[in-house]
């Protein structure tokens, strides 16, 4: 099976079959958007709820709004239909607290949900929060998401 790693700030789309993997998510979010009918799915590895999108042009999915926008666009160019899109999200853990930014995982989840809602994309599954890191795998053939945690 074709397996594609999705690093921080990256997004990838696969058609028909293959697996998308985002490893070691702490407060980051793995955002999966897919079109079950046309068998296209994509994953973005989102770092932070907001930030300067111009700072890292080589990391186009660092923040929720550009990540959702770019992922949707790419899914459509791979044959997806914007009316069929559904989403799954995982991550957003709070491993450490930082005085400067409150609860980043929670903010990340809220920001992604807002961006999806704006585009009427329904969330069909989520596993967010907690305080443990996750590795997330999405199988484009079955449109199923698998979450691994090391405890």
């Amino acid at each position: 099976m074709n397996k594609e790693e999705v690093g921080i700030g990256q997004f990838k789309v696969i058609k028909d079959s293959g697996e998308l993997i985002a490893r070691s998510l702490g407060s980051c979010i793995a955002l999966v958007i897919y079109d079950r009918t046309n068998k296209v799915g994509g994953m973005a590895h989102v770092l932070a709820p907001e930030g300067n999108d111009e700072k890292r042009l080589d990391k186009p999915a660092m923040y929720p709004e550009p990540a959702v926008k770019r992922l949707v666009r790419k899914i459509i160019t791979h044959g997806g239909d914007k009316d069929n899109l559904e989403a799954k999200i995982a991550g957003g853990a709070q491993m450490f607290s930082f005085k400067s930014d409150g609860a980043p995982g929670e903010k990340n989840v809220k920001a992604i949900k807002k961006s999806l809602e704006k585009r009427n994309i329904e969330i069909t599954g989520e596993d967010v929060g907690g305080n443990k890191a996750r590795t997330v795998k999405f199988d484009v053939n079955s449109m199923s998401m698998k979450i691994e945690m090391k405890i």
């Binding site: 921080i8 998510l25 702490g26 980043p104 890191a133 090391k150």
Partner: peptide, 12 residues
């Protein structure tokens, strides 16, 4: 926990 998740948080 996993090393990777720590570095991501640090970068943020």
């Amino acid at each position: 926990d996993m090393i990777g998740s720590f570095f991501a948080d640090m970068i943020r």
